[in-house]
């Protein structure tokens, strides 16, 4: 295998895991744009959704039926979290909100352990084994499938936000909630929808990554760190940035793992942290974000 095909091989694999980071980053960015909140529990909510899917499949439902049911449950769950956990602290000091989402993280993690135990579960593979051979570079069906799913999610979000009146209302709320209120928009409901949407997008990332990582309550912990790196890199307010950031982080991860000997597989998790640090130092608003403006 030549050096070039070897490099390309690493890039392809990086894109595959990057797509997973991208979808969780997308969920983080959605919440942040709507509410200004960084939701530390986003990964855990995704993990919970994944358990729902696993439970449905384990009780005999075909996967492709369990998936839409899971997404619907996640949507409702996200709305519920907004209403019960987040709404009471909306407008409280930032640190309070951070602590609440960290508390939610711990609670959901423990809850999943309580219900499903901490033993690893095998999650059904959604995509067939095998793949394509493109000039010596092997592209697994699962990699293509994951990239395809994330592209579809991205496309649907784009349609929702840019071409529907509900999407317009959601963007208005994200932009200026008090003015939205004066226009008669029920901002509370829209925020609930935003959390529901984010939980659904997050659920996609959990379901995509579960066959690779195996399902257990701490499955999303690592993914969350990569997703944070992706969202920071892309810009915490930019859905496009989240996806691009996710792909870059995924590729950076595999490349450093493969080529930088001191890092190797064990220290790979340092990569997203370095990316976060570097972005915050050099370009805090990220690649696609706007520089912070003071809102009047």
């Amino acid at each position: 295998m030549s050096a070039v095909t070897d490099l390309l091989q690493q890039v392809v694999e990086g894109l595959g895991s990057g797509a997973v980071y991208a979808s969780l980053a997308l969920a983080l960015v959605l919440i942040h744009r709507f509410t200004g909140i960084v939701n530390f529990a986003q990964g855990e909510l995704a993990m919970l959704s994944t358990y729902v899917a696993w439970q449905l499949v384990a009780s005999g439902m075909p996967f492709w039926l369990a998936l839409p049911v899971t997404l619907a449950v996640s949507f409702a769950g996200g709305m519920l979290v907004e209403r019960i956990v987040i709404r009471p602290v909306q407008g409280a000091p930032e640190l309070t909100v951070v602590i609440v989402t960290v508390g939610l993280f711990i609670f959901v993690n423990a809850l999943a352990g309580l219900i499903w135990s901490f033993t690893v579960k095998d999650f059904p593979r959604q995509f067939p084994d095998g793949g394509l051979d493109l000039a010596g570079v092997r592209v697994d069906w699962s990699t293509l499938g994951i990239l395809g799913v994330v592209a579809v999610v991205m496309g649907l979000l784009y349609l929702l936000f840019q071409h529907t009146s509900s999407g317009l209302v959601m963007r208005a709320v994200a932009c200026n909630p008090s003015s939205a209120r004066l226009s008669g928009i029920r901002v509370g409901r829209v925020l609930m929808l935003g959390w529901g949407l984010a939980a659904t997008v997050g659920a996609v990332s959990g379901v995509l990554v579960a066959p690779v990582l195996f399902l257990e309550p701490n499955m999303m912990g690592g993914v969350l760190i990569y997703a944070f790196a992706a969202a920071t890199l892309g810009g915490f307010d930019s859905p496009v940035g989240a996806v691009v950031g996710g792909l870059i982080v995924g590729v950076a991860e595999t490349l450093t793992g493969a080529y930088v000997d001191v890092i190797g597989a064990d220290l790979k998790v340092g990569v997203p942290l370095m990316i976060i640090l570097a972005v915050l130092l050099v370009r805090p608003q990220g690649l696609f974000g706007r520089a912070a403006v003071v809102r009047a």
């Binding site: 317009l168 963007r171 939205a180 226009s183 008669g184 928009i185 009047a296």
Partner: peptide, 26 residues
Amino acid sequence: VAHVPEGRGTFNDLTVEENLRIGAHL
């Protein structure tokens, strides 16, 4: 009641027409 507040309440990220559509939302 339509209140045009101090500071104008512009939806900065939306286009002019989208701002008006938000007004028509009700």
